[in-house]
């Protein structure tokens, strides 16, 4: 068993888990943060993407204990005081989600992109999403959603933290 201390969505968390526990399982099973989804077992689909110290990471491919001491942000931490993050808003406005399963991972990956490029081209957005599968939308509206968010961020309407 290993002790894991993390800051998850701004809150300190301290738990004992088996050494082999993946961060995705830790979030889902131990912390009941089930917004992070698991869609594959080969680190391919990106549904489990979260931010670890601001960077997009597949939480199914790191151990909870490896992340010890990190700042974690999950989809549950994106809205602030009930106000949606521009990405969440973008996905809603542009119909960037259907079944919703890949959506949290998409949003977290996009958050990483927008944190260092707030004016990405369509091509840059598509390339940034190469590690995330969506089977519902054909990606068309996901691209629009991220463009929507980027525009809002650029206009200064929203301060963004990733």
């Amino acid at each position: 068993m290993a002790k894991v201390e993390l800051i998850v969505n701004g809150q300190s968390v301290e738990k004992e888990v088996e050494d082999r526990t993946l961060l995705a399982q830790f979030l889902r099973d131990t912390l009941q943060l089930t917004g992070t989804h698991v869609g594959c077992d080969t680190s391919s689909c990106g549904a489990c993407t979260i931010l670890v110290d601001g960077k997009a990471v597949k939480s199914c491919t790191i151990l909870a204990v490896q992340a010890d001491g990190s700042h974690i942000k999950t989809i549950e931490g994106m809205a602030t005081n009930g106000a949606l993050h521009p990405l969440q808003e973008g996905f809603k406005e542009e119909h960037g989600l259907q079944c919703g399963f890949c959506t949290p991972g998409m949003i977290m990956t996009a958050a990483d992109l927008l944190s260092h490029n707030n004016d990405p081209s369509e091509q840059e957005i598509r390339e940034a999403l190469e590690g995330n599968f969506c089977r519902c939308t054909g990606y068309h509206n996901i691209v629009r959603s991220i463009q929507h968010a980027a525009k809002k961020i650029r206009s200064g309407e929203a301060a963004v933290s990733a």
């Binding site: 889902r28 943060l33 089930t34 917004g35 992070t36 989804h37 698991v38 999950t74 989809i75 549950e76 994106m78 809205a79 949606l84 969440q88 996905f91 809603k92 406005e93 119909h95 989600l97 919703g100 399963f101 959506t103 949290p104 949003i107």
Partner: peptide, 19 residues
């Protein structure tokens, strides 16, 4: 019309069987 179901999916509150 924007989808009413989106709010829960966008905030991680969707409830799938494995959840």
């Amino acid at each position: 019309v924007k989808r009413v179901e989106d709010q829960r999916f966008l905030t991680g509150k969707g409830r799938y069987t494995d959840d």
